[in-house]
Structure formats: structure tokens, C-alpha cells
């Protein structure tokens, strides 16, 4: 029996065990989940040791020329282990501060240069009709840009919850803001519908892939 056949059979059995959740929670489903979590965690630990710790920390320590460069990350990584103990967790605070500071600075810089500025420029350039190839394209770009701008503005207006007190003691938003917020709800509903459709299509594709493997295996067994 080849390795490929064994892996196919194991995959088929585990797939049916997970599908058994359709009739409710049962030991077969939980067993499959435990196997997945255990194997994934073990594999992740092996990957981290093999791809990260060994080539980037352990092996360079044997080279005296790199020892001075690695002494700082080595100490910081060791202090992170102190986080396991509530009494000694303060020892790892500096290493955590380095991680959070570097990570936050990188993310903020990337978000500013990679998302905020380019997206704002793209929103403004969408109204540049000079880039259109013909009149039909210009009209299409104009409509697309207007819808995009309206969706952005109306969605932002929807989250404007500022209100003023009325004579009756209750609070109420401005009538214009209320109407624009109602339009913004439509755009938000459309966006949520798109996201739901995307999630459904992803799940449907995954299910089709699993059903295809099961059906093809059965067809191969039956010689069809």
C-alpha cells in the first residue's frame, strides 16, 4: 500500500468524522479535532525549532564572530521565558516592550504609507476623467467614483452618533444626518452581504474539494 493511498484513506476517515458533526456533537468529531490540534501544534513546534531557533540562534552561537551579535537576542529570548512565572514575569517586560514597540512602529508606518495615503490618492484620482479612454469609459468611471464616494461618506455618517437634546428631554440626531445615516446603512448592509457571500463561497469550495476527494476515492475503489 503506497503512502499516497494511506494518506488518502486517513484523510477520508477524518473527513467523515468531521462531517458527523452535522448530526450533533459526538466523540468521533471531537477525536478528529483533537488529532488536528495535536498534530498542528506538534508540527508548528517542530517548524519553529527547525526553521527559526536552530538556524538563527543555535547554530550561529558556535561561530565566535557572531556570538557578540547574538548575545542580545539570546538574553532577550531567555527573559521571555520568565513570562511563564507570575512572580518573574517582570523580567520579560523589556523583551516584550521591544517586541511591541518594533511591531507597532512597523505596522503604523506601513499602514500610513501603504494604505492611508495611497487609498486617499486613489479615491481622489477616481474623479480624474482625463484618464478615460472614451466617453463611455468616462461615464462609467464617473458613476463608479460617485458610488464609491457616496458609500464612503454615507458609511462614515452612519457612525456619527452625535445628537442634541430636544425639548422633551430625549436625544435626536439632526434630520439630515439621520437621512444620510439611513442611506449609509444600505451600503453597510451591502458590504456585509458581500462578506457573507465570500465566506459562503470559501466554505462551499472547501466542502466541494473534500467531497471530490471522497467521491474520487470511492470511484477508484469501485473501478469506475
Amino acid at each position: 500500500m503506497s503512502i499516497e493511498l494511506i494518506s488518502t484513506v486517513v484523510g477520508l476517515i477524518l473527513t467523515l468524522m468531521v462531517f458527523s458533526y452535522l448530526i450533533g456533537d459526538n466523540p468521533l468529531f471531537r477525536f478528529a479535532v483533537y488529532i488536528f490540534i495535536g498534530s498542528a501544534s506538534g508540527y508548528a513546534a517542530a517548524v519553529v525549532w527547525h526553521y527559526v531557533l536552530t538556524p538563527k540562534l543555535i547554530e550561529p552561537l558556535t561561530d565566535p564572530s557572531q556570538l557578540l551579535l547574538l548575545i542580545v537576542p539570546l538574553i532577550l529570548s531567555i527573559t521571555l521565558l520568565a513570562k511563564l512565572s507570575p512572580r518573574l514575569s517582570w523580567v520579560g517586560n523589556f523583551a516584550m516592550a521591544v517586541l511591541v514597540g518594533v511591531g507597532a512602529a512597523t505596522a503604523i508606518g506601513g499602514a500610513l504609507i501603504g494604505t492611508l495615503i495611497p487609498q486617499a490618492e486613489a479615491s481622489m484620482n477616481a474623479f480624474n476623467l482625463g484618464a478615460a479612454s472614451n466617453n463611455v469609459d468616462a461615464i462609467y468611471r464617473m458613476i463608479e467614483s460617485s458610488v464609491m464616494l457616496a458609500g464612503t461618506v454615507l458609511t462614515l455618517v452612519y457612525f456619527q452618533f452625535g445628537a442634541k437634546h430636544t425639548t422633551g428631554g430625549s436625544t435626536r440626531r439632526n434630520a439630515v444626518i439621520e437621512f444620510l445615516a439611513w442611506l449609509g446603512r444600505i451600503f453597510i448592509a451591502i458590504t456585509l452581504g458581500v462578506l457573507f457571500a465570500g465566506v459562503y463561497m470559501a466554505a462551499l469550495t472547501a466542502m466541494i474539494e473534500r467531497l471530490s476527494s471522497v467521491v474520487n476515492f470511492l470511484k477508484s475503489l469501485l473501478g469506475l
Binding site: P118, E121, L195, G198
Partner: peptide, 15 residues
Amino acid sequence: SAQAGPMLEPYVSSG
């Protein structure tokens, strides 16, 4: 994946 595509579409529009 189809679940992440709509959120990445603006980066296509911006080039």
C-alpha cells in the same frame, strides 16, 4: 480566498 477578496479589492483599484 473568496472570504478575503472583497477587502483586498481596494488595493487593486489603487494600483
